[in-house]
């Protein structure tokens, strides 16, 4: 138990610390690297909770794809981060004040109210208990049966995102050479090769 507690506090502290560094680091590349550190520690927290599937997804999707994409964008685009940060200190007190007011309000409201006792019955988990199946298995069992509608709907959303990205960025440019393999295959020997008889001492004209 004590080992678990120590591990939790270690991972949690590193997560919060690196998340803080993400927004304070001067160099945007450092920010992204701290973000990756935060993701890894959050994944470790999920493992501690017994949610190994979400932990792995977090590493694969967020570290493997999203963070690398961020890094790519930060390095590709020439963004002046010093300029973006201007006015940060000026807005900071006001932002903190609004954030604090909202937080206090939400805590007051949410702490003061409890869910109705019989409201929890419909929320009872449809998945079998964790000591019978792994949670990857449990998720897979409902994702393609009970939630097939949402799964397919989310697929359509991704299709729209893909079409949108292509429509808004792809444009036909003039003068770009493209490989046309059919034209290459269709070429015959006579079109491509010409035999010349070279007389000695004269060369080709």
């Amino acid at each position: 138990m004590i080992v678990q507690a120590i591990a939790f506090y270690l991972f949690a502290a590193v997560t919060v610390g690196s998340a803080f560094l993400v927004i304070t680091a001067k160099n945007p590349v450092h920010s992204v690297l701290f973000l990756i550190l935060a993701f890894f520690n959050a994944a470790a927290l999920f493992v501690l909770m017994g949610a190994e599937f979400i932990a792995m997804i977090l590493v694969i999707v967020y570290v493997g794809a999203v963070a690398v994409l961020f890094l790519f964008v930060v390095m590709m685009l020439d963004i002046n981060f010093v300029e973006l940060r201007q006015g940060f200190q000026q807005y900071l007190p006001f932002g903190l004040l609004i954030g604090a007011i909202l937080l206090v309000e939400l805590i007051l409201i949410l702490a003061g109210s409890i869910a109705a006792p019989d409201a929890l019955a419909p929320a009872a988990s449809p998945a079998p208990s964790l000591d019978q199946v792994t949670n990857t298995h449990a998720l897979g069992a409902v994702l393609y049966t009970k939630y097939i509608y949402l799964f397919q709907g989310a697929g359509l959303v991704l299709l729209v995102a893909m079409i949108g990205a292509i429509v808004l960025t792809h444009r036909k440019r003039e003068g770009v050479k493209k490989q046309d393999s059919f034209a290459q295959f269709a070429r015959r020997r006579e079109e491509a090769v010409e035999l010349k008889k070279v007389e000695p001492g004269q060369g080709i004209q």
Binding site: L106, I109, S113, A115, A116
Partner: peptide, 27 residues
């Protein structure tokens, strides 16, 4: 605060009146 996202289940839960309405739900 209500334990379900399904409209039918939610309607059943609240059919009895205001017994199940917490401030969090109203928010």
């Amino acid at each position: 605060f209500a334990g379900s996202t399904n409209f039918t289940d939610l309607a059943k839960l609240f059919a009895g009146g205001h017994g199940h309405v917490s401030v969090g739900l109203v928010v």
